[in-house]
């Protein structure tokens, strides 16, 4: 009896322990690969090009980039689609009442975003939940896939984030006028302020309203870009120092961990700001 419970406990510890070891090993291998790849690039001393990783190239062969050309950015967007399909469709194909691990992750993401929409934007925003969930999953997976060494981060490009932020901005503005008519303009007329201040506040509110898509897009692209550039700079130090580059490697590992966190947080922030803007469109009165 006692031995039985002991062995089962040991197995469990061994399982979680081996999971941790595997995760740690994967991260270590990733970092080492990353650094090796960089050392290959930077054999010629300290010439770091942190922005080169964002260059868009045709994936098949060379040539000019037309609007339909399959580029490295396109490939990683496609991989994000595949990963999302694997999680949300293949992971839930069991339709189990008692979920498997993958299914419970999918349900967790679903419940997380749904609750966010409901809490921040209100119950009447739930019809827009699929759109918001699409944005969330795309940003999350593009960010995470971009952290694979040697990959390309689609969300580090302002063109990509600006399209998403602009789409949110346009949708929210049009929706606000459709739902509230001219009453949507009361968003800029702060009725709780003294009458003298209201025109000034209206100008400020108007400016801040139009800055929204700018900050919304640049926040995401800027965070991702800055993180990857810093990683590249540290890795360039490692490449310049050669085998004895202990400090840059520790720095790369630490910043890599931070970037994993930032990837998730930026996806969350983009989504929750979308919800906040949506709330303004549905309930413009302060």
């Amino acid at each position: 009896m006692a031995t039985d419970s002991n062995t089962s406990g040991d197995t469990q510890t061994a399982q979680s322990g081996s999971g941790r070891v595997i995760a740690f090993g994967l991260i270590s291998v990733a970092v080492v690969l990353f650094i090796l790849g960089l050392m290959d690039d930077y054999e010629s001393g300290l010439s770091i090009h942190p922005m080169d990783q964002f260059i868009i190239e045709p994936f098949f062969g060379d040539g000019p980039i037309h609007w339909y050309t399959v580029t490295n950015s396109t490939v990683w967007m496609g991989l994000a689609v595949l990963a999302i399909t694997a999680l949300m469709v293949l992971g839930t194909r069991g339709r189990a009442v008692i979920p498997s691990r993958v299914q419970s992750v999918a349900e967790l993401a679903y419940g997380f975003v749904r609750k966010m929409v409901e809490d921040v934007a209100g119950k009447d925003a739930l019809p827009y939940f699929p759109y918001i969930f699409t944005l969330f999953l795309f940003i999350l997976f593009a960010n995470f896939l971009g952290l694979i060494p040697g990959s390309f981060t689609s969300t580090s490009h302002i063109a990509v984030t600006a399209v998403m932020a602009g789409a949110v901005f346009l949708t929210v503005t049009i929706l606000g006028f459709i739902k509230n008519g001219a009453g949507f303009l009361s968003l800029f007329w702060v009725s709780s302020a003294p009458l003298v201040l209201r025109p000034i506040l209206a100008v400020i509110e108007l400016i801040s309203y139009f800055v929204r898509p700018v900050s919304h897009s640049i926040r995401l692209a800027g965070n991702v870009m800055a993180g990857h550039a810093v990683l590249k700079v540290f890795a360039g130090f490692a490449g310049a120092l050669g085998v004895g580059a202990v400090a840059p490697i520790i720095g790369v590992i630490a910043i890599y961990g931070l970037e994993v966190l930032v990837s998730a947080i930026q996806a969350y922030v983009f989504t929750i700001l979308t919800c906040v803007y949506l709330k303004d469109a549905l309930h413009p009165h302060h």
Binding site: S215, I218, R219, G222, N223, A226, Y268, V269, I272, L273
Partner: peptide, 20 residues
């Protein structure tokens, strides 16, 4: 916590502008 993240996002956006 949602408010916290929104506040952090706004504060950080201006830093990102400087970086940009």
């Amino acid at each position: 916590t949602a408010t916290l993240f929104i506040g952090i996002a706004f504060a950080e956006a201006l830093g990102i502008f400087a970086f940009l």
